[in-house]
Deep mutational scan, measured.
Amino acid sequence: DHDVVPEDKFQETLHLKEKEGCPQAFHALLSWLLTQDSTAILDFWRVLFKDYNLERYGRLQPILDSFPKDVDLSQPRKGRKPPAVPKALVPPPRLPTKRKASEEARAAAPAALTPRGTASPGSQLKAKPPKKPESSAEQQRLPLGNGIQTMSASVQRAVAMSSGDVPGARGAVEGILIQQVFESGGSKKCIQVGGEFYTPSKFEDSGSGKNKARSSSGPKPLVRAKGAQGAAPGGGEARLGQQGSVPAPLALPSDPQLHQKNEDECAVCRDGGELICCDGCPRAFHLACLSPPLREIPSGTWRCSSCLQATVQEVQPRAEEPRPQEPPVETPLPPGLRSAGEEVRGPPGEPLAGMDTTLVYKHLPAPPSAAPLPGLDSSALHPLLCVGPEGQQNLAPGARCGVCGDGTDVLRCTHCAAAFHWRCHFPAGTSRPGTGLRCRSCSGDVTPAPVEGVLAPSPARLAPGPAKDDTASHEPALHRDDLESLLSEHTFDGILQWAIQSMARPAAPFPS
């Protein structure tokens, strides 16, 4: 592969990997390779389809078979030569091979799209000592099968071997295949498990690692696999990028399955594409389908809103127990993405979901129960707010008499603000006073009005108090039968009158 990737590009890729991570280095090298001529790309395919690569990765054979028959990708048995050289000459001794072996032994695996480039050397060096003999053996194999790289107009793939297949390693990572398949204008990513390549439709969760975000852009890794992070704060999961590491605690105790298979379609829109997988259930989501939507993949363990709600429900009964003089119970939860139609709101002032922060849900004790107040519409209280300059209440639009249902020339009671006709409430011909108009209920007259088809109010509507207090003497005590009587009149003013009279009014101040 030294004929494909020059030394300066190799060093530039290593520097970019240390600065921005393996995914960015892979993407940059792939983009550079696509700008080369067809001879360089053909050399790339020839390096990929060597015999030892085909033996190690069985899924490469179907890719090789898909090439046109007129494309010669065979390799000479006596060494490598550029395709432009007409004579089959043995190339001179390859010093770059020693360079590659020494550099890969030092860096474990470079971040390139060629056999030198995919593992994360920093994480491997940190986690190597417990498994040094086995990992050293794996390093000797890295130059042979560490990076199976493929690129063409139909298929483009980048393979990364790992030393996680050490025997006896619980939940060992089998390997990473960062794979971009450009077929019919689409893009897919796969993962390699035990020599087999699994596409998103049959993606397997190998051991402790999972394909957290099938994305090839942005600074985030394709698999949430930063070796420096180790395990999740809650004892979460091992990262795919942690090559040759000792077994780590796999999943939280509440995880239903340690080796679950995540779905390959969004649980909201039932469509495929780039998904984020939940650590607590097999569901996966688009970032845009979450509520609120996320802009980037959160670091650490992530769970959907259903799993978060289940966790909150487990903690909430203990938080609601009476604990005198104790601060509110704080339950730190990872930043969760909410699927459509589901929402768990945190306290005000918290950062938005999706940031690399930890939301704190506070379970406050329930407030003391209070008697429910009568629910009145805002339009129902409008007549009470229509007060004239002299303190006389004006008529609201649409006000109707509670007896006849007519809204023409209605009066407004100064005591309960109900609309009424003087002739309907006082049919006996009582003279109307000039000021202080009161309806039949507030004036103490319980004589029913002779209106055909309208039920008369119940005599129990009024329960006047002592006459010594004029204001308190007109406080009506309405009961269920009074409400039914008012409802039978089918008037809004009657219902409003009952609601206003049912509310307690402050006692009249004593004259000074």
Rank of each mutant, 00 (worst) to 15 (best):
F285A: 09
P506G: 15
L411F: 04
P457K: 12
H382Q: 07
E265A: 02
A353Y: 15
V344T: 14
E326T: 09
R461G: 03
L352S: 07
P249L: 14
P249K: 13
L486W: 08
T301W: 14
A251C: 09
D279W: 09
A399H: 04
R303P: 14
S291K: 04
M355G: 08
P397S: 10
L252T: 08
R400V: 05
G341I: 12
A417L: 13
M503W: 04
A353T: 10
L411C: 15
G346S: 14
T430K: 10
V451I: 14
P249I: 14
P368E: 15
D409R: 03
G272H: 03
D493I: 03
A284C: 13
P324Y: 14
S378M: 14
G465S: 05
K261V: 05
A288V: 11
L373Y: 10
G241T: 08
V344M: 09
A248E: 01
G465C: 13
A417R: 14
S299G: 11
R480K: 08
A499F: 01
A472P: 10
P335A: 13
C269P: 03
R432M: 04
G273V: 06
D406S: 09
G429L: 07
P256W: 14
Y361W: 07
T471S: 14
L373Q: 11
L333H: 13
P247C: 05
P464I: 12
P427Q: 07
Q393L: 11
C439R: 02
G407W: 10
P367L: 04
G398W: 13
P332Q: 09
R440E: 12
P317K: 09
P372N: 13
R432I: 07
L250W: 12
L381Y: 01
Q392P: 13
P459L: 10
Q393G: 08
G349Y: 12
A399I: 05
G272E: 07
L381S: 05
D271G: 05
L385Q: 13
A396L: 11
A460W: 10
L411V: 12
L275K: 02
A366K: 07
D406K: 07
P327H: 11
P253K: 04
T430H: 07
A319G: 07
V451C: 03
A456S: 06
T408L: 12
S306V: 10
C269Y: 04
A463V: 10
L486I: 04
P397K: 10
T430N: 06
S291H: 05
Q325N: 12
L376S: 13
E343Q: 15
D377I: 13
V315P: 09
P368R: 12
P466F: 11
L290A: 11
P365V: 14
C416H: 04
P506L: 01
R295V: 11
R318T: 05
A288Y: 05
E452M: 00
H363F: 12
Q243R: 07
D470P: 06
G434R: 10
G273D: 09
L381E: 11
H259R: 08
I297E: 04
C304S: 14
L462G: 11
V360C: 11
G244M: 10
Q260W: 14
S305T: 13
P327T: 07
L385E: 04
E265T: 03
P322D: 12
K468W: 06
S473A: 14
D481P: 01
A310N: 05
P448V: 14
V446S: 09
P457H: 05
V454Q: 04
H479V: 14
D481I: 01
P368Y: 12
C289N: 09
L252V: 10
M503G: 02
G341C: 15
H259F: 09
A370K: 11
N394V: 11
Q497S: 05
R303A: 10
T357K: 11
Q501G: 11
C401I: 02
G402F: 03
S369Y: 12
P506I: 02
S305C: 11
A467M: 06
E342K: 14
P351K: 09
A251Y: 14
T414G: 10
Q313R: 10
T471V: 05
C281Y: 06
S458G: 07
R283L: 07
G405L: 02
P247F: 15
A380G: 12
D470N: 08
G391V: 13
L486F: 07
R323C: 11
L478A: 07
E390I: 11
D264R: 03
P317Q: 09
P249M: 11
D409G: 11
C424M: 01
R480F: 12
C304D: 15
T408R: 06
E452P: 13
S291W: 15
L376G: 08
F510G: 05
K261W: 00
S502G: 15
L455D: 04
G444S: 06
A251I: 13
C442T: 02
L352T: 08
L359T: 05
A366L: 00
E314H: 14
R295H: 00
S339W: 15
A371I: 09
L352K: 05
Q309V: 07
C269K: 03
L364A: 09
G388K: 05
L486A: 06
L294E: 06
P459S: 10
A460S: 14
